[in-house]
């Protein structure tokens, strides 16, 4: 592509008078992207998350060994080396392969929690904020009840009731992580609900349902995306915590938290067994945090319309 076409494409995207719906939308996205990409650390965060996605997608290709079947006879607790980059664990499994496959489980947990918790929070928060009165009071008191317990303790209680396993861990984390989203969505709703543009839609004869869904929710989504991204690290840690306590992923699943738990027993002599998954959790959490910070700058509705 020559410099000229790039230049004209940029002008097309930044045009003050878009000629189609698509151009308007792309232009908006481009402005957000420019703001996002101006933040170096956010780009680093995004690269980490992209790397996580790639690793998860191509785990079969990237992992040299099976994540679940080890060589008990010859390869127990080997230190990092050429054959096993991150060493092996007590069952002779290659830790590098386990971490690569573990990326899938980490993504699985994070995405499922986000898909379950964020819409619940959004719905509860916007409805409470827009309806006000009794609806608001009831919904917010329920939210408060959930917020009153420490997250991990509540998740523990749920998993204990539902039975251990990674699906139940996801469910438990989702159940405990929606209340903050509801709070954010409600606060955001309260600031826009009395604005003239919402009144104008009311005067069109729109139903409350339509107003919440089509006019209020889109305004709450960017703050919510930011918050969810920032929470991803927390979700990973909670999942790891549950895994560590034996209530999340069950052996032999290569879930990072569970891997740390099993490495705990020989942490002093064979440090790499726990350190490698620990580092993986650290890096991915950091990635999500950096990404979230960048998104906040790029999407924050308070930072002006452009």
């Amino acid at each position: 592509m020559s410099a000229e076409t790039i230049q004209s494409r940029r002008a097309w995207l930044l045009s003050d008078r878009p000629a189609s719906r698509l151009q308007a939308r792309l232009g908006r996205a481009y402005v957000a992207w420019r703001r996002f990409s101006a933040n170096r650390l956010a780009l680093v965060g995004m690269l980490i998350i992209i790397a996580l996605l790639v690793v998860a997608a191509f785990a079969d290709v990237l992992a040299p060994y099976s994540p679940t079947v080890g060589d008990l006879k010859n390869a127990r607790l080997l230190p990092p080396g050429a054959a096993h980059w991150f060493g092996t664990d007590d069952l002779g499994r290659d830790i590098y392969s386990r971490i690569v496959y573990g990326a899938r489980w980490t993504l699985y947990v994070v995405i499922l929690v986000a898909i379950i918790a964020a819409p619940i929070g959004l719905l509860v928060g916007t409805i409470a904020g827009y309806a006000g009165g009794w609806t608001d009071t009831i919904l917010m008191r329920i939210t408060d009840i959930f917020l009153a317990f420490p997250k991990l303790v509540l998740a523990l209680a749920f998993v204990a009731a539902l039975g251990p396993g990674i699906e139940n861990a996801v469910l438990a984390i989702a159940i405990t992580s929606w209340p903050p989203y509801a709070r954010i969505a409600r606060a955001e709703t309260l600031t826009v609900r009395n604005s003239d543009y919402i009144k104008a839609v009311q005067l069109m004869g729109a139903s409350p349902f339509r107003i919440v869904l089509r006019h209020i929710m889109p305004l709450c989504i960017s703050s919510l995306i930011i918050r969810v991204t920032l929470d991803m690290a927390g979700i990973i840690l909670t999942a790891a915590g549950l895994g560590f306590l034996g209530l999340g992923a069950q052996p032999p699943l290569p879930e990072w938290g569970a891997m740390i738990a099993s490495g705990r027993r020989f942490i002093l002599d064979q440090w790499w067994v726990a350190a490698a998954p620990g580092a993986a959790i650290l890096i991915v959490s950091l990635g999500f945090n950096l990404l979230g910070d960048g998104l906040r700058d790029a999407l924050d509705p308070r930072s002006g319309d452009q």
């Binding site: 878009p18 719906r21 308007a24 003239d196 543009y197 009144k199 104008a200 889109p218 319309d305």
Partner: peptide, 17 residues
């Protein structure tokens, strides 16, 4: 109805269309 403040009466995330 037409509102007083044209800066507040149009949804910030919607095109004219």
């Amino acid at each position: 109805m037409v509102f007083q403040d044209p800066y507040g009466s149009l949804h910030p995330r919607q095109t004219v269309d």
